[in-house]
């Protein structure tokens, strides 16, 4: 049985001091989403992280925002972040060019329970930009494939042109050791894949509920309905993990900006085993 999500490494003082990074690569994923590959300006290793953790990225002068790491843990030289340009900071980051500097602080937060999921079926359910924080889990499970039973990824995007990591997804779909299903809410004539919400895919897959570790990331409403669908399929709530989002400032549990009920998302989350947050999840006032 899975008892706890991964444990958050202690946030030390150095976590409050940003490190300078340089943009090595800028990739446009979709019309509003891009991926940054960042290397330490001073050379050497990048910050080490666990899948599900995030960094605070500074978009000068707009401010800083929490962004999950979307690259593999074994890339020691760089940090990879996939970002949707939604507001002032992320739009500033969207204007970075190769060679520009960015300040990075982190990594923060409780990671996905990749160690606890060993020996289990791994089910990743992602909606929209939620695929980015789950991608490191996918890399990890594929690299250590024998430690896990089946691997299923269900990914919902708004339209075909909003699908992230297209080429990589095509490679994953060609593999026989994982099942990767994509669905879109709205299709166009070019799309021959699934149309419908991601929970619909969940109703259709084969599942050994008691042996499944489900990790879910996306808008809160999507996670709410995914959780209900998982419960309907018999997956115990102690085997469901959700990644929560709130606005952040310090990232280390001292400013109270990211409070959700009794929790600070930056320190106690963002990844939570569902029963821990059941009482505050989907509460309108929170």
């Amino acid at each position: 049985m899975i008892a706890l999500a991964g444990t958050a490494p202690d946030a030390t003082d150095s976590a409050l001091v940003p490190s300078p990074y340089v943009v090595k690569r800028f990739v446009c994923e979709t019309d509003d989403t891009f991926t940054l590959t960042l290397a330490p300006s001073a050379g050497g290793d990048a910050l080490r992280f666990a899948p599900g953790q995030f960094n605070m990225l500074y978009g000068f002068p707009a401010g800083d925002v929490p962004i999950s790491v979307s690259g593999p843990t074994w890339r020691k030289d760089v940090l990879i972040h996939t970002i949707r340009a939604v507001g002032p900071v992320t739009k500033t980051l969207a204007q970075l060019q190769r060679g520009d500097s960015v300040l990075v602080r982190g990594p923060f937060g409780v990671p996905w329970p990749i160690a606890n999921a060993e020996g289990q079926d791994v089910l990743l359910v992602a909606g929209g930009i939620g695929l980015a924080p789950l991608r490191p889990v996918l890399y990890h499970v594929l690299k250590h494939r024998r430690r896990y039973r089946s691997l299923t990824v269900l990914y919902g995007a708004r339209t075909p042109s909003d699908i992230l990591f297209r080429q990589e997804i095509a490679k994953w779909q060609a593999r026989s050791d994982l099942r990767f299903e994509v669905t879109v809410d709205r299709s166009d004539a070019s799309w021959h894949g699934h149309v419908g919400v991601v929970t619909q895919l969940l109703d259709r897959i084969e599942l050994s509920p008691l042996q499944t570790c489900a990790m879910v990331c996306g808008p809160e409403v999507m996670m709410h309905f995914t959780r209900l669908a998982l419960s309907k399929r018999g997956v115990p709530s102690s085997q469901m993990y959700l990644s929560m989002e709130r606005n952040m400032k310090c990232g280390v549990g001292s400013c109270g900006h990211c409070q959700l009920g009794p929790f600070f998302i930056c320190k106690d989350g963002p990844v939570f085993e569902y029963p821990r947050i059941a009482s505050v999840f989907s509460v309108k006032e929170l």
Binding site: G87, K91, A94, R158
Partner: peptide, 25 residues
């Protein structure tokens, strides 16, 4: 009906503040 309601919610819609960042670049 449940699935259609979720589809109508347009869960991954960009906020009004968003738009193509490529124009910004």
């Amino acid at each position: 009906l449940r699935h259609t309601r979720l589809q109508v919610l347009d869960l991954y819609a960009p906020p009004r503040t968003s738009g193509s960042f490529q124009a910004l670049r």
